[in-house]
């Protein structure tokens, strides 16, 4: 089980901030492909990965990051702090 979190427009497009996902995905990219296959709103949110960033257990990661032992994955657009 994974906690998957969404922020900013990704959260709005998918329509929820967080969900528990039952998955055997080996990498973030595998998880993205699973989510894309679910419903149109997921496919829309994940249409352009160059517009997205991912954090794995609260650390910025790449889309090829492995998910073994991971508890939380978050998807969001590039940050706009400061």
């Amino acid at each position: 089980m994974l906690d998957v979190m969404y922020f900013a427009w990704v959260r709005e497009r998918i329509g929820l901030p967080k969900e528990r996902v039952e998955t055997q995905a080996a990498t973030v990219m595998d998880l993205v492909d699973e989510l894309r296959g679910r419903e149109e709103r997921y496919a829309a949110a994940f249409a352009d990965l160059s517009a997205l960033k991912v954090a794995v257990d609260q650390e910025l990661a790449e889309f090829d990051a492995p998910l073994k032992g991971v508890r939380e994955v978050a998807f969001f657009p590039p940050m706009t702090g400061g």
Binding site: F7, A8, W9, A55, L60, A74, F76, P77, P78, M79, T80, G81, G82
Partner: peptide, 30 residues
């Protein structure tokens, strides 16, 4: 400041008379 702008997990959304929009990151910030 450079790192807080594009590596701290904050996202800004601006609401004006014309509606609401997420602030987009700029290539120059990266």
């Amino acid at each position: 400041m450079d790192y807080l702008k594009s590596r701290a997990p904050f996202w800004k959304k601006e609401t004006t008379g014309e509606g609401a929009a997420w602030v987009e990151s700029k290539a120059e910030d990266e």
